[in-house]
Each structure stands twice: as C-alpha cells, then as structure tokens.
C-alpha cells in the first residue's frame, strides 16, 4: 500500500512562555488522500490552526515547539528535514490560504507581481513569462478582466476578490495539498458561497488534497468528504461527512449539532453545550470534554479515551467501517451508546 498524500501522526505542540506551558496540540493524527477534502472542525483554541501551521512549517518557534510526532508528505517526514529542503515543499507541494487576505498580501506590491514572484523564485521563470502566468492564474480564479487588474494593489480589491488573489497565489506552483484556514470567515455569505464553489471546482480540476479548517458546521456539510472534529488539541471524532451528521459518536459532536440554529428548520429549541472551551494551560484530566459532557461518568474524569473505530453493531443501519479513511472513529468511552442515539 502506498503512503497517503499527507499524514499527520501523533503531533504534539506546546507554547512555552515564561512561567507557563500551553498544550495547543496533544496527539493529533489524520491522513489526507489525493482529491479528498478533509474538514478540520473546531472552536477557537482547539488547535486546528496551530496544527496547520506546523504542517506548513510556519510555526513561530519560540514560543511554539513541536514536541512529538511526524508530518509525512508521501512518506517523507517533513519535520525531520533541514530548513533548506523543507522550503522546497512549502508553497510548491503544500500551500496555504488564510482568513485575512489583506494582511497576507504585501500592501506595497501589485498583485500580479506578487503572484509572478512565486514563479520566478520557485520555477526560475523569466519576469515576462511569470507575469503572463500570473494573469492566467487570476483568470483561473475567475477574477474579471484579470489582465488589467494584475496591476492593482491589494487594497483596491474587495474582500472576496482579495481571497481569490490569495488562492491564485497558493495555486501558482500547483501544490498537491491546499490548506485553507477559515478561508471565508471574514466574508459575507453571498461571497462565501462564491469562494467555496471556486475552491471545490479548482480542487476537481487539479486533483488536490484540500484541508479545510473551519468552525462553521454548515460550510463543512456542503463541501467536505471527511471531517475531523477537534477539541482541546485532539481529534475527538472522525468520520465521513454524512456519517458524522447523521450519527455523531462523540457527545461534543452531538452537542454542537444540537446547539446551532438551522436556517431550514423553524422554532427548534437550542440545547447549548454548558461551560466554555477549556483553558489549554490546564486541560482537564481524563477526557478533556468531561466537565461539559452530559453523559460523563466517573471513568471519564480519569481515563483518556483513545480515538477508536466505532463498532457498527450498536446501529444496524450504520455503514460498515470501511478500511482506509472513511471509518467512523470516536474518542469517547461510550461512543456506541452516543451513536445509537
């Protein structure tokens, strides 16, 4: 069996500041296959962005330290590579787009030149060719009259158009993996719909693996193939998107689904999750979710539940656990009970 496109294995990241250590990521594992969309879903402080930065190799260190784990790209452990070889992967094999396009683009350079710069540096293209390719890329992300807009500065673009510029830049080197960190959070819904549509079309065209980092359960349902739900720096549930929404097997997933209002349902009572996300400097012992969990028992406060395959036996209607990526996994001692309803 060949190695998956991207594999994150037991990743641990700590932030060390004077006097305190914050555990942002505590044993994160997932895999991504070619052409697949994996959504990493989590609230603020769940470690979803930090782990993506570690995969990209753009973590600020210090204060962040990867203390354990591996990030394998087609079997090569990126964390073990010297910085010089690492750079060959960044941007070229794995690219990233951010929530805030305005601060990710250089305000004093024309956008066409910024895209061209990537090609000149990595592909050793001539300036003229690079400019031409930049316009083609802007065309490809559906920026109207790309040729004339290539000479504009980032602040002359609207929020949605800036996001497109950033996507064009990320795609310039035809990466195999695209990490999109909350790409539409700062955008209006009508523009968000445009960008999500664009991303999924581009993914189809280029057969990329797409990691979509978000807190929005709606966006995930629309575009993802598989979901990894994070809580306190760990994956607590991982499943195919339909499986997770239909039969959540972790109380946190269950709670999230019950607490979001839905535009297509009238007068549904919201059942909030009690409490607030944990303080990462003092993650609760045992299952990190147990203080907020309505199903918690004594065992939960002492024993850390492993991420394991949920056996389908509890629910005869459930899809059988398939080998490979689409198995339904949960890190709850009582996963079967939760999935059973």
């Amino acid at each position: 069996m060949s190695a998956p496109l991207l594999e994150v294995d037991d990743l641990h990241i700590e932030f060390r500041t004077r006097g305190s250590t914050v555990s942002a990521v505590n044993g994160l594992s997932y895999t991504l296959d070619e052409g697949e969309t994996l959504a990493i879903l989590g609230e603020s402080g769940s470690g979803k962005s930090v782990s993506a930065q570690a995969v990209m190799g753009i973590l600020d260190s210090p204060p962040a330290h990867v203390t354990k784990g591996a990030v394998r790209f087609r079997g090569t452990d990126l964390l073990g590579l010297p910085e010089k070889r690492r750079r060959a992967y960044r941007g070229a094999r794995i690219a990233m787009i951010f929530q805030d396009a305005l601060s990710a683009l250089n305000p004093v350079h024309r956008v066409g030149d910024q895209i061209a710069e990537m090609l000149i540096v990595h592909r050793k293209m001539s300036r003229g060719d690079a400019r031409k390719s930049a316009v083609e890329l802007m065309d490809r992300v559906r920026i109207p009259s790309a040729a004339s807009r290539a000479g504009d500065f980032p602040h002359q673009f609207s929020g949605g158009m800036r996001q497109r510029v950033m996507i064009a830049m990320a795609l310039a080197l035809e990466p195999d993996v695209l990490i999109a960190d909350e790409p539409t959070t700062a955008l209006d819904v009508t523009v968000q719909a445009q960008i999500m549509k664009l991303l999924s079309e581009l993914q189809d065209e280029m057969a990329m693996g797409l990691i979509l980092i978000t807190h929005d359960l709606g966006v995930v349902a629309d575009v993802a193939d598989r979901i990894a739900l994070m809580y306190a720096g760990r994956v607590v549930e991982e499943a195919g998107v339909r499986d997770l929404y239909a039969r959540p097997a972790h109380p946190y997933a269950e709670g999230l689904l019950a607490s979001v209002p839905r535009i297509d349902v009238r007068g549904r009572a919201l059942t909030p999750i009690k409490g607030a996300p944990p303080n990462l400097a003092a993650i609760p012992a045992g299952c990190p979710f147990h203080p907020r969990c309505p199903r918690a028992r004594d065992r939960c406060s002492t024993e850390v539940p492993e991420l394991r395959v949920v056996s389908a036996g509890a629910d005869p209607g459930a899809a059988p656990a398939v080998a490979g990526g689409s198995a339904h996994r949960s890190a709850c001692h009582y996963a079967e009970e939760v999935a059973g309803g």
């Binding site: 009690k274 409490g275 607030a276 996300p277 303080n279 907020r292």
Partner: peptide, 11 residues
C-alpha cells in the same frame, strides 16, 4: 454558574 457558563479563566 460555573456549570452553566464555564469556570473563570484565571483566578
């Protein structure tokens, strides 16, 4: 109160 809204972040 803690049960409903979460503990105070730092004391």
């Amino acid at each position: 109160a803690t049960a409903q809204t979460g503990a105070v972040v730092s004391g």
